[in-house]
Design a protein around this nucleic acid. Structure first.
Lengths: 346, 346
DNA sequence: CTGTTAGCGCGTTCAC
DNA sequence: GTGAACGCGCTAACAG
């Protein structure tokens, strides 16, 4: 056990505890000779300064808290990884709290009161542990204004946002615009879109991008090509069937997530419509499975790592009391695979 | 900011700091009247005791460290979730360290020296933070004996093991036996197997289960049905092609992970072999994508949550100095989906 | 039984 | 290079 303290080291090395501390922290010059002796004893006894005592005195913990709504949801680990990446470089440490929302309340995000206490507890605990700031990772982008109170401690949201605090989000509108541009460039003009539920922020942003592309590229605007899904594969399946039954079916479909893209593929294969020859599909999220489907789907990858990284960077600035200049939103990246081709000439 | 300390509360409530402490911890009776007054002031000022000071005095932190080799690897988040689940119930807190091995060194686990220092740093840091024990989560089951030294602090390994320490592993042999039994029960007798690389523990254990089933069910033992893959989809693809070219091809294939099962599906679809009518497939891991493939694959789910839970439970016992009685290994669970059917009668 | 005083835990840091 | 006060909350000893 490490019940050895600084005075044990001091005693064994025949110096005062002050000297040991100076050696350890390089806070002051110590004669080479004694320094080496001290260092050797520390090594021998495997001494590790008690962090609790240190931060008590220093009034700094070099620690931030991360509250993850649920670490098992696909986007979260990669964001944490980005936070870690950045934190490592600036010698900051992370205290992770996992709210386990997905298991505890499922998808009912709108019933905030049913899970507010989990968040409150997490914040209390983190503040008590003297974190210097907090990063909050949502499982679905949405407005969290008024949800938690950090009592003045800096907080940065990612994959969610509030009206008052800093938040790191990716450029959803641009992503969907880019997906469209890519299809147009391949020669498509009749492009269908299957959205997520419409009261969700990403759905709306992505729809904006879609609409912007339709306008700028002067594509035929046909409301029949716009389908409102619910993020699940079944809706992708059902709505694709509807699209295929149109008098003039689309030559390409943008699905607002990979899960619904699976539905698209199922519907197409059932109807004997070949992807990508007869129908192109783009998904969103670059979920792990998108690379294993047949065909492997072309999809927009979310800049999760970068979001985590930026969140940590910004939080560090906030902690230092410096002004955080608005960084450009991280962009999604198109992962070209096998589900998109030029449309068949009819 | 929460620069407010216990004495601020004491002053405002006209009591001594001792009283405040007693109120807070319920360590002694305090007259209802004063208690309520104190509580009210605490509430008003949002006072949170400084955890550093507390643990310094109490010599207990109620905190354990979790070292994850890489949080972005598929099995890790679920294990963390299990740890969390258990830790929450016993009011323990978690300090997570992410080694980021996958990004830093990729799959070269055998070159331990290239990443030992990451682990050493993580342990040092955790010990310095006075964790009461450590859980180590590997990204691939393997022997880590001698890899790290916790200087006497309890440690539990999961998804990896050492000769000396407690480790929580799932029952791999049984899983593969069960997969076989399931196929046999469906009527299969010629069953091919595609293993992972053979110097890996899970490969060997799963092969044992396979062999045991072959023996017990008196299946024809044909070495041609045994193929050594490398965990990647391409090997599943290539080896399936080989199996299909056999004079007497198998009616079912057990792939030792879902990724190779994807290769099986690709090969089959290319050869016009219908799954599951002409060929049944079972995968391993219940990776997210296995549920989105066409056909959705039947697979063995790893008891990740339970492993995390058990690891935490055992560690808690170790910390208390109690003896940990050997628990039964968590079992995998067969997830029945669409890739298995009875063999065609020839 | 209720409340207070004061020393302690362990490193840091100022004054000597 | 050293002695000792200090940070903040806990708790033993003591008082009413």
């Amino acid at each position: 056990m490490s019940e050895i303290g600084i005075k044990d080291i001091a005693a064994k090395a025949n110096v005062s505890t002050a000297t040991v501390s100076y050696v350890l922290n390089g806070t002051r010059n110590v004669k080479l000779n004694t320094r080496e002796r001290v260092l050797r004893v520390i090594q021998e006894m495997n001494y590790k300064p008690n962090n609790a005592a240190q931060s008590l005195k220093r009034k700094r913990t070099n620690t931030i808290g991360v509250i993850a709504e649920d670490v098992t949801v696909f986007n979260v680990p990669e964001i944490i990884d980005g936070i870690n990446d950045c934190a490592d470089r600036m010698d900051m440490h992370i205290l992770l709290t996992n709210l386990r929302l997905d298991k505890r309340i499922g998808r009912e995000f709108d019933r905030m009161d049913s899970y507010r206490h989990y968040a409150d507890n997490a914040v209390s605990e983190l503040l008590s542990k003297q974190v210097e700031g907090i990063i909050y990772i949502g499982v679905h982008p949405r407005d969290l204004t008024g949800f938690i109170d950090t009592f003045g401690k800096p907080i940065v949201y990612t994959y969610s946002y509030t009206h008052h605090d800093l938040s790191i989000q990716y450029n959803d509108e641009q992503a969907s615009y880019d997906a469209m541009a890519y299809l147009v460039q391949k020669g498509h003009t009749r492009i269908g879109i299957i959205s997520g539920v419409m009261d969700s922020t990403p759905s709306r942003l992505r729809f904006n991008g879609f609409y912007k592309a339709v306008t700028e590229y002067e594509l035929p605007f046909d409301p029949q090509l716009i389908k409102i899904g619910d993020w699940e594969a079944e809706s992708g399946y059902r709505l694709t069937l509807e699209l295929l039954e149109l008098e003039q079916p689309p030559t390409a479909i943008v699905a607002m997530n990979d899960v619904m893209a699976v539905g698209v593929i199922r519907a197409a294969s059932e109807k004997g419509v070949h992807i990508p020859k007869d129908l192109s599909v783009i998904g969103f999220d670059n979920r792990e499975f998108s690379n294993y489907l047949i065909p492997r789907i072309t999809t927009m990858e979310l800049p999760l790592h970068e979001m985590g990284y930026q969140a940590m960077e910004s939080l560090a600035l906030l902690i230092k009391g410096e002004k955080v200049e608005k960084q450009p939103m991280p962009s999604c990246k198109l992962i070209e695979r096998e589900s998109v081709a030029a449309p068949r000439i009819r």
